[in-house]
Nucleic acid binder design. Sequence first.
DNA 1: CTGTTAGCGCCTTCAG
DNA 2: CTGAAGGCGCTAACAG
Lengths: 339, 339
Amino acid sequence: MQQHLPTIIDIARQLGISKSTVSRALTAHPNVSAKTRQRVLELAEQLDYQRNQLAISLLTNQTRTIGIMVPEFISFFFPKVIIGAQEVLAEAGYNVVICHSNESYETEVENAKALLASRVDGLIVSHTKETRNFDHFRIFQRKGVPVVFFNRVCEDMNVSKVTVNDYDGAFRAIEHLIQTGRRRIAHLAGPDSLPNSRNRLNGYRDALRHYGIAEEPELVISYDLTLEKANIYVNHLLNLPQPPDALFTINDPTAIEALKVIKSRGLRIPDDIAIVGFSNDPISALVEPGITTVSQPVSEIGQQAAALLMEQITDKDNTVPPRTIVLETQLIIRGSTVH
Amino acid sequence: MQQHLPTIIDIARQLGISKSTVSRALTAHPNVSAKTRQRVLELAEQLDYQRNQLAISLLTNQTRTIGIMVPEFISFFFPKVIIGAQEVLAEAGYNVVICHSNESYETEVENAKALLASRVDGLIVSHTKETRNFDHFRIFQRKGVPVVFFNRVCEDMNVSKVTVNDYDGAFRAIEHLIQTGRRRIAHLAGPDSLPNSRNRLNGYRDALRHYGIAEEPELVISYDLTLEKANIYVNHLLNLPQPPDALFTINDPTAIEALKVIKSRGLRIPDDIAIVGFSNDPISALVEPGITTVSQPVSEIGQQAAALLMEQITDKDNTVPPRTIVLETQLIIRGSTVH
DNA sequence: CTGTTAGCGCCTTCAG
DNA sequence: CTGAAGGCGCTAACAG
């Protein structure tokens, strides 16, 4: 049972002074005598006094809290982004509330409402793969609470965003496969609703075209990012009359699932089929062979998102327009494509 | 720039009624006419009205928010625990604030202060490996805010706890190694300050004793859980005049680090040396060979911790004493110990 | 340097 | 069924 917590009034009464003076002493306000401050601080210490942030937030209309919404945080990507963002936000004196939606649109909407009700000062978001309607984020914008998207961004909202050059990353991945002799390159693509999926797919297509390789529709499969489906589609590709000699997957977990399937069928990697993933998940270096992958500057994504958010928050007059930062990727070559 | 958000007063004024009535309509209080409620709800919807949780929390002295503090959340363990806890807490109508300390005691203390200031209704904690002083948690207890520990627990505090049977898990891991013919079994142990490290070490020792194998002091190394040190100590063990024929590590990341070192030296696993980890990190199934490991019911740890916390929070009269739940582990046998 | 007053947004008595 | 008043804990003018 929560007991009565000491307030400035308790301190004031015990010291026979007014609560304003206590408040001033506690907030290091200049207009307090050293002696009074000393007495207040001592008693506060003794009583285990802790300022009530709720009252302050209510009064000042700012919580110094930032909400971070992600679709999941089991894979390494989102936790790393969050840590990067926290570095920057902590520096600026902001706390962080993390919400994950388990890729559920409904949960995402609920989380957004909770964050709005608790009056966060800003929002950093990567939305679920189900999200088509962005009204729950638009409310923030309408209320003057800055929003920054990263990774999965809403193209229709005029807010700051941080992405990576997915197109270029995919292009160079495919280029690498072609240069190492592959010709039937399959692509396990993400949902068409996600801009980063589309960009990677476009990079794939343009690379094939650039090198004069005809795209085979049967080699491009868009799926829902679940490993169950990944498993099914990899098997499907391998069962084709003319199976692919390379596979480019939307992310590393999928690449690893593919690796498992391929190995279980007794095929050799990279001899029979090469694999390229995306994101450089630490796991991709640990499996055998290591997975060639497109690395993203994960922690920098978080830092930049936080920086863009702070830019909007400190911009009291709304003079700084939202910006989009696109970070570059890097191809990490491992044993899944070359010996 | 944050603009003025609509309040019940705005609604009251526009409707020409009092704010009390608006409040009643919004909170589904019985004493409001259906028509009035209807009008209020409509206008609220139209204005995008969102209750100010800060004001409510200040008034009711409860935030319906639970703080979860973990030392890190890059590995799969803590995120999974958090998700498990969230399931239970969401069900009970509680929100969650997640803090990670990066294994830094200082950050942990700061986070605790921030959570106290923001008046969380309860705390779920796994502390850093540096934490020796638990005063920052005792404050919560003293203030009547329930605390539940999991995984890394403070033995001196009389609060609810969730752990696994580390002793038994370790015992059976060593038993398995002995039964598969190993005799020089090394143990890379965690810091002596962590009870779960000590319990695993004791399980290791008792298993050796039980099977009449003398413990070799040179085969037991306590270290700080960093992979750099793990690397050094694995090399050290392999350089011994009589190297071990098995290695039991405090966790799976360490086991995988060991696996890398061992393979890079051209030794065969499990023929030359066997490895057993702890926790059943998904990665341990993906490396080659798969790592034999002691599985913990991760998500259940979170669920139980949340349940114990709710038990304390709902116990208004302080009649329910804190409880400790010890969950059982399971030995998962893979290629790192047997063919 | 200190005290007084007002108010942040809301819920909850207490009167009508 | 509705309105008025009080107060949660704190800060920020405004007076002394």
